[in-house]
Write a protein that binds this DNA or RNA. Structure first.
Length: 196
DNA sequence: CCCTGATTCGC
DNA sequence: GCGAATCAGG
């Protein structure tokens, strides 16, 4: 493969959009991410900041909204957590900062469709027990250690040091490990004849 | 371990 | 010019 005008154009467009080198390489085909990065440098566009602009813009406050937009178009409303002792798993509440930060309107590969959002939050005793057991063995990953195959269930209070992500192997295509999938995705039947 | 971009250097 | 190998890092 060679760098035809068309391929270079695609490269420029995607790079400007904030796509990663590997994503661009995948899109183009026939090249590795190294080739893409090399080309990017030769083209002199390694600096992704727009021309002229001297505004590096701090991503500080933007993190949460960005994550929400990327992974959960409809962020579920949280019930105020009753007791601090029991971090009360939210029904499929995406941890706010989960999405990887990428600049410039990246085209998010589209995660899994969000499961139905149960309004009630009733969890089977078995599932709860399983979760408690699993959370003892949590890998306690930090945000940046999360990958597509690690459980992203948040554990603890984000406002304190005692906060981490489960990190156990996630179910294929799911954001959580088996135990947390069990509490995050509840079949209607499980909640059916429960009353509060 | 998964990923990111940056750099080097033989081709 | 090209890009694999390597480096540095989250």
């Amino acid at each position: 493969m060679s760098w035809t005008d068309e391929r270079v154009e695609t490269l420029k467009r995607m790079w400007t959009e904030g796509q990663s080198a590997s994503q661009i390489a995948k899109e183009l085909g026939g090249v590795t991410r190294n080739a893409v990065i090399g080309k990017v440098h030769r083209l002199g566009l390694s600096n992704r900041t727009e021309e002229g602009e001297a505004a590096p813009e701090a991503p500080a406050a933007a993190a949460a909204p960005a994550a929400a937009a990327a992974s959960a178009p409809e962020a579920p409303r949280h019930e105020p957590v009753a007791a601090k002792s029991a971090p009360e798993p939210e029904p499929e509440a995406e941890p706010a900062p989960v999405a990887t930060f990428t600049p410039r309107r990246p085209i998010v590969p589209a995660g899994q469709p969000l499961p139905p959002q149960p309004s009630a939050n009733e969890i089977s005793p078995e599932a709860l027990a399983s979760v408690r057991e699993v959370e003892k063995r949590a890998r306690k990953l930090t945000l940046m250690e999360l990958t597509e195959r690690t459980c992203k269930w948040p554990i603890g209070d984000p406002a304190t040091e005692k906060f981490w992500f489960c990190g156990l192997p996630s179910q294929a295509g799911k954001p959580y490990c088996e135990a947390h999938v069990g509490v995050a995705f509840q079949p209607m039947s499980a909640r059916r004849d429960r009353r509060r």
